[in-house]
Design a protein around this nucleic acid. Structure first.
Lengths: 228, 228
DNA sequence: CCTACCGATCGGTAGG
DNA sequence: CCTACCGATCGGTAGG
């Protein structure tokens, strides 16, 4: 039975009416706090009751903003993507194209882990591990967004090749894999072993892999960017 | 009030009476299944009720083997350490000392992730991430064991240096960091993105880092081991 | 090893 | 946004 004028509006969809400035501000405050908690406790450890208590509101009051725990988790992942864009992707675009921008992207990325934008370390490392053996829309969104970040790395590597700053025989997929691994590695070493030296090791590894694959033009461009 | 003859024996300690062969076998069966589940769902996602149901026993019957969820988690971590020793640490000792043994250790390590000894990928990656922002004896045990694995890597690097197979200026801590990062990287790429090519990339990265740091003697020893 | 419980907490709902 | 609930599940206990 289909109805052309449904009595019950779909409160779980993104089109749910939410036009007041106050409602938007409250929702944003909830999500900022939720991303912090999820970076430490995971998206399942983030419970509606404990989040509500920390924000000084009732459980059902908070719940009404999202409609389900899954919708809350999706909103938290979206919010984390905004924070990542602001702290890593966008700042890297200020560097000149080529190896400089590639290095800038990875340098900001390590910095975002290092400076602990989130109390629990890298939000993405946490939720990737948490959802790696699950299925559903939350996992799908995590996979989609982190795939974009990997593609952004690889695009910068391939752009540097096209500009003649990395050698033609440089293996873009291999470099991308190694860069991602270094970021993961320093996040875990820091969070689990308190090893702050790992950030320097990640940066050094990234720099050496770029230098090893760079042409003379690329080496000069990278040195000029790092010095400047 | 101290008693020299306490009426209630400490059932949570390791000294709890457990002498029957049957009890030991049951306990081992429970733990093997539990490690599998924890590699996918984590040590919190491993609930006593669901584990009991899967093993066809009552919740309290299973519970009696451990005394608390925390003791179960500790036993699961110990069991995972036995499996890691059998699959990675011990097989590597069959390779000759030096860069060959270093490569063998890392090759078996990647193989243990690749061949999915556990259904959820690397048990250690899962629980390291899960407990990175927690405190307590379970986290402490995870940190202790994974630190041992890192030390085993670094000991092999330093041994290869002493034998003149890696150059004197090779940075042992840097190499160790990069090897660990590659293992983490291929586990996540495989589990989250289904990227089985990542195992080859991890192995290639490990081999190139060793070759880049190797002396002529070391290059020959590595080539002989990989060919043989 | 079992059945039969316990209090606490989970996500979610009713009704305002 | 609230109070007051719900059934399900959690770790854990009593008593055998």
């Amino acid at each position: 039975m289909e109805s052309t004028a449904p009595k019950t509006p779909d409160l779980t969809s993104a089109e749910r009416p939410r036009t007041t400035a106050h409602g938007d501000r409250t929702r944003r405050q909830i999500l900022r706090r939720a991303v912090d908690i999820a970076s430490a406790q995971g998206l399942e450890g983030l419970t509606i009751g404990s989040l509500a208590k920390e924000l000084g509101m009732s459980k059902s009051g908070l719940f009404a903003h999202f409609g389900s725990k899954e919708e809350l988790q999706l909103a938290v992942v979206d919010e984390a993507a905004v924070i990542f864009a602001e702290n890593v992707v966008e700042p890297a675009f200020e560097a000149p194209e080529g190896v400089a921008r590639l290095y800038a992207l990875m340098d900001h990325w390590v910095g975002y882990v290092d400076e602990s934008v989130f109390p629990g370390g890298c939000f993405w490392s946490k939720v990737e591990s948490e959802f790696s053996a699950r299925s559903g829309v939350v996992r799908d969104k995590i996979v989609e967004l982190t795939s974009e970040y990997i593609k952004a790395m690889q695009a910068d590597v391939e752009n540097a090749k096209r500009r003649g700053e990395l050698r033609d025989d440089a293996d873009a997929a291999q470099l991308t894999f190694e860069f991602g691994a270094y970021v993961q590695g320093c996040n875990l070493a820091s969070q689990l072993h308190g090893d702050r030296a790992a950030f320097g090791r990640a940066r050094l590894g990234i720099r050496r892999r770029i230098e090893d694959a760079a042409t003379d033009k690329g080496k000069k461009a990278l040195a000029a960017y790092i010095k400047g």
